[in-house]
Design a protein around this nucleic acid. Sequence first.
DNA 1: CGTGAACATGCAAATGTGCTTATATTATAT
DNA 2: ATATAATATAAGCACATTTGCATGTTCACG
Lengths: 114, 114
Amino acid sequence: MSAEKGSTGRGDGRVTPRRIPADADFDIASELLKTLAHPVRLRIIELLSSGELCVKRLEKLLGVSQPSVSQHLRRLKYGGLIESERRGHLVCYRLMEGRAVEIAQLALERPETK
Amino acid sequence: MSAEKGSTGRGDGRVTPRRIPADADFDIASELLKTLAHPVRLRIIELLSSGELCVKRLEKLLGVSQPSVSQHLRRLKYGGLIESERRGHLVCYRLMEGRAVEIAQLALERPETK
DNA sequence: CGTGAACATGCAAATGTGCTTATATTATAT
DNA sequence: ATATAATATAAGCACATTTGCATGTTCACG
C-alpha cells in the first residue's frame, strides 16, 4: 500500500512536493478538520460546491433553523472556507478554500473494500 | 473553478463515479473527520503512514503521556482508522483506512494561493 | 418613518472532549 | 509465584461545542 514518499499525487496530474509538517501545521490542519467535522457544515460545503447560495435557500435545503444555519456559516467563514457577499437584503455565500470540497468528498466516500 | 460533477479525480488515474450522499452519510463522514480533527491524532496517522509502531515508540515520538497516547489510539481504532496487534508485550498499531492519510495530507497542505 | 423579510448575534442548558492521576491488565523473565 | 515493562482503563475536572430560543440588525419598499 505504501504511498510514494515526499510527494502528493493529484487529480490534475500535478505532483506537489510535500514539505515536512512543523508542529504548528498539525494545529492548523486539525482546526480545518474540526471546522468541517459537522454533518450540517459538510452539507453546506457540498451544496456550495455547485455555486453560491443565500441563507434563506440554505435554510430550506438543509431543513435547519435559520439561526443554526447562520452559526454554521459563521464558523465556516471564520475558518476561511467560505466568503459572503451582500446582495440586496440577501447574503450570498460561496466557497473559498478548494481543499474543503476535496476533503468533504473524500470523507463522504465509502471506505475502500480492498 | 467548478470541479467536474459526478466524478472524483484521483492520483492513480482512476475516476470513481460519485454517488449521491444520503442523510446518514454526512453523519458518518463527520464522525471520520472528528476522529482526525486533533493535532496528536493527525501526527499519529502521519507517523503510521511510514509503517507500524508500538505505543512506547509513539509516546516518545509524540512527546505525549502514555495514557494520552493510548486514548488517542483507542479513538482512532474505534473509528476504524487503525488496527492493533500484540507482539510480545508490545502492541503495534498500523493504518487500516486509506482515506485517513489522504485526508490528513490534504488538511496539512498550505492553502492554495491561486 | 415604519413595517416586514433576511440575517446575525447572545445566552443558557446539555453534551462532548482532552488531560491528568491513579489503578488495572497482560506478558516476560527470574 | 513475583517483579517488571508495556499498555489499557477509569475517574474527575476544565474547557469547548451544539442547540434552541429570544432578540438585534440591516435593507427594501411603501
